[in-house]
């Protein structure tokens, strides 16, 4: 089974995000970066599937040379090789999906696993566009029935299940008020939700092995994709600051305030 996974470089959720005074974007200096957590879950799921059924996991990222750090992270987790689409400058979701489409056509995986969204701009579009462009089936928001504390999780059992004939995958997806189980013909696109798995940590030997794993460099030109954005970010602004909370001396005051000020009891 060949699985293509994505590894977007995003701001570390732990770092403090500041909007530039002119609203043109966020302040980059001093920020730390990570692999998008949803993508990391995708890498983990890919690795579990490959471990169970044999095959390889190829990881792709789009951006400047910096994204190699996230590719190395996925390689250290266990991916076999990486594809880097070298591109600086703005991209919109259509552009990203168009680039991924070309990479998929080149790599011909059985399954593409992406995060359902990236935690920087929370668009939740790329997986869906990609499936559409490829004409493949899709199962978004993949989750699982077992909890993250379960034995199956500890034993790194993949939640995405290959059917007996190997021609489709069964995916449990999160929907409002519950879970739906889908069966999707391969090749297919799956996007991951938060409770699909607990990604492994990159091990030290994994990190050392990742150093010598190949990263293939591509560009939008080489892939023949025009990535001129059709969407432009006009302005960014920080959410309004929240007022600091207060401490109350006793329960009576708390109830009084909840009743008269918050009007919730």
């Amino acid at each position: 089974m060949k699985i293509l996974v994505t590894a977007k470089r995003v701001e570390d959720p732990e770092s403090k995000i500041k909007v530039k005074p002119d609203g043109s974007g966020i302040v980059q200096e001093g920020l730390k970066y990570k692999i998008n957590p949803f993508d990391e879950i995708g890498v983990e799921e890919g690795l579990r599937l490959a471990a169970k059924h044999g095959g390889e996991v190829v990881v792709v990222s789009i951006g400047t040379k910096d994204v190699q750090e996230q590719l190395r992270h996925a390689l250290a987790m266990g991916a076999t090789r990486a594809v880097w689409v070298n591109h600086a400058g703005a991209l919109d979701q259509l552009g990203i999906a168009a680039l991924l489409q070309k990479v998929v056509e080149k790599e011909k995986p059985d399954l593409v696993v992406l995060g359902k969204q990236s935690i920087d701009d929370d668009q939740n579009q790329v997986g869906q566009y990609l499936a559409e462009f490829l004409g493949w089936g899709q199962a978004t928001f993949a989750s699982k029935v077992e909890s993250l504390e379960s034995e199956a999780e500890k034993n790194k059992v993949p939640a995405v299940a290959l059917t007996a004939d190997g021609k489709a995958v069964r995916v449990v997806r999160e929907v409002d008020n519950g879970l739906a189980t889908l069966e999707v013909q391969l090749p297919a696109v799956v996007t991951t939700d938060l409770r699909l798995n607990q990604p492994r940590y990159a091990s030290l030997p994994g990190i050392m092995k990742a150093k010598s794993k190949p990263i293939e460099e591509l560009t939008p030109e080489k892939l023949g994709v025009d990535v001129t954005p059709r969407i432009q970010v006009l302005k960014m602004s920080a959410p309004p600051a929240r007022k600091a909370g207060i401490k109350v001396p006793d329960v009576a005051t708390l109830v009084e305030k909840l009743h008269n000020e918050a009007k919730v009891v």
Partner: peptide, 14 residues
């Protein structure tokens, strides 16, 4: 070096 930063971030999360 990059490998040491990777080790650092992996252990930090752990």
């Amino acid at each position: 070096p990059e490998s040491h930063r990777a080790l650092q971030s992996s252990l930090r999360d752990f």
